[in-house]
Amino acid sequence: MASHNDDTEESGDAVTDGGVVEEQQQTGFGPITKLNERFGSDFVESSQFWLPPFLLVGLFVYGAIIWNVMISLTDFQGFGTPDYSDLDLEMYARALSDSGFVDAAVNTFVLLIGFTLVTLAIGLGLAILIDRNIRFENTFRTIYLLPMSLSFVVTAQFWAWMYNFNNGVINIVLTSVGLDRVDWIGSPNIVLWAVVFALMWQFAGYAMVVYLAGLRAIPDEHYEAAKVDGASTLRMYWRVIIPQLKGSTISASVVLMVFALKAFDFLYSLVGGYRPPNGADILATKMVREAYANLNWAYSSAIAIMLFLMALSIVGPYLYYQYKEGHL
């Protein structure tokens, strides 16, 4: 229902959005007409909607990444401003010869793979259980997903307490069944798996939601056909259902890996500082520590770029796959 006022204003031309466009469309020589001819009839007029957000994202995301590459090529550290006249790859060489960096890279890799696989497996199990026509399905689902709504800062407090050596729930349970207490946070060989477990607790519900959507999209006939063939439940899932969840698996694992790359918040809050427990340093924490505790700006930028490339190697193929499948 257009107001009367709008109607009279715009009665002159079919597609109007202010006088400038209108005039140039009529003469047919302006740059706007040329843009519209090249990109499509709504290109210029729709740009008032998508261009400002696009510029903001372009500046803050892509502009910043390019700037980060530049800083990583300088020797910028301490206070002051970076000197862009002398660019080299020194900081990348420094990273590769820094055992702390190599350890952090290995830990990042372990965290990424371990966390993703464990969470996917648990999430799939949860989704299958939830999908068995149970009562109170919504309640179960809501509680399984609940930890995901919490901040890493909050869950880190909970898990610091769960893993507490003397009074934590986990050690209390261990001693009650006759096992020895374990120093979950203090042992360099264990702490990373303790972190993987805590993150799994937080995100298994997410994997469940994605898999549940995938399961519900499979037609009932597939289940019934398997039953008619006399397949056992286990066999039906393994042979018929799970292969059809490929799409869910791919998109869930990409998102989970990105969460794992962001585990910085969790590790920072676990100890309340830039230095994570021994054996749990990952690239994300090392980068922030080098920058904001040690003021090694250029070095931390180089670490950040390598972290970015790691993310890109995961996300790039995924985006290409989505593009090929026509989901973009």
Binding site: F54, V57, G58, F60, V61, Y62, G63, A64, I65, W67, N68, I71, V254, V258, L261, K262, F264, L283, A284, M287, V288, A291, W297, S300, S301, I303, A304, I305, L307, F308, A311, I314, V315, L319, Q322, Y323, L328
Partner: peptide, 18 residues
């Protein structure tokens, strides 16, 4: 594609410039 890829950027990669 640039919008979609922006979701997956690890924020560490933009911190120092930020």
């Amino acid at each position: 594609a640039l919008f979609v890829a922006g979701i997956f950027i690890p924020y560490q990669a933009v911190l120092v410039p930020l």
